[in-house]
């Protein structure tokens, strides 16, 4: 990952600027949706948050596989960081989705396939965080996390299909827009928002991974110290 402090700080600045640009576009630039009105603007960051959440869990999968093969705990630190961020973003997806659903469908929640899959996803990775927290041995926790990181992500498409089939008779609320094809300003805003959110995620991930590795190193130093005090 980005190891130089200067590069990390630069990433933070780029992410911040991109976020400001995206926010400005969402508020001022993009036109109102004819059907949903102003509230449709939630769509841009709702989708960006969801994209980042799935990206985070995909990275957990990759890190998990690499860890199992290499047994390098630094990859596990990366997985831990990405999983925690993934849960953060998934939580936001659910909250923001709920805040969007209330005005347009008059309901805080609906069991439509995408929201339901996101909810199951949330539970899977909360279980991941709990598993890590409740496994006292660090190396074992890494192995367990890696297994769940793989099993959990592989499950996501299966969950999606099963929920979709299950809801196939239900007229689920559709994220309808006035035009079936997104007009260009909307596409551009969407892409900028996704890019900004991804940059924010990368910045957070860089620092979170750094924190995990610092904590791992501190723990090792502490064990050394205890060892020396015992044997001195």
């Amino acid at each position: 990952m980005l190891t130089s402090a200067g590069a990390r700080r630069a990433l933070v600045w780029i992410a911040a600027i991109a976020s400001a640009v995206s926010a400005a576009m969402i508020v001022f630039y993009v036109p109102n949706d004819r059907v949903q009105g102003v509230v449709q603007r939630i769509f841009y960051f709702h989708l960006a948050l969801a994209w980042v959440a799935y990206l985070a869990f995909f990275l957990v999968l990759v890190a998990s596989v690499v860890y199992l093969v290499s047994r390098d705990l630094r990859w596990d630190a990366f997985a831990r960081a990405s999983a925690e961020l993934g849960v953060l973003f998934t939580t936001l997806v659910l909250i923001v989705g709920s805040l969007w659903g209330k005005p347009i469908w008059n309901t805080w929640w609906t069991w439509d396939p995408r929201l339901t899959t996101t909810l199951v996803l949330w539970f899977i990775y909360v279980a991941y965080l709990m598993l890590r927290a409740y496994t006292p041995d660090v190396e074992r926790g890494a192995r367990f996390g890696a297994i769940l990181g793989i099993v959990g992500f592989v499950d996501v498409p299966i969950v999606h299909f099963s929920v979709q089939w299950w809801r196939s008779l239900h007229p689920d609320p559709v994220f309808a827009r006035s035009d079936p094809q997104l007009p260009t300003p909307m596409i551009v805003t969407l892409l900028v928002t996704i890019a900004a959110m991804t940059l924010v995620f990368c910045a957070l991930l860089t620092y979170r991974t750094m924190l995990e590795r610092m904590r791992d190193d501190n723990r090792a130093l502490e064990d050394d110290e205890v060892g020396e005090r015992v044997y001195a």
């Binding site: 899977i124 598993l131 496994t135 006292p136 929920v163 089939w165 299950w166």
Partner: peptide
């Protein structure tokens, strides 16, 4: 895995239920 955690068997449903949602939906339907 659950057997080795502090919460022991209590962890199992928390791990198992979300992942097996497709099975539950499938068998019930």
């Amino acid at each position: 895995m659950a057997a080795h955690t502090r919460a022991r068997e209590v962890m199992l449903p928390i791990l198992l239920f979300p992942v097996t949602v497709p099975i539950l939906i499938g068998v019930v339907q």
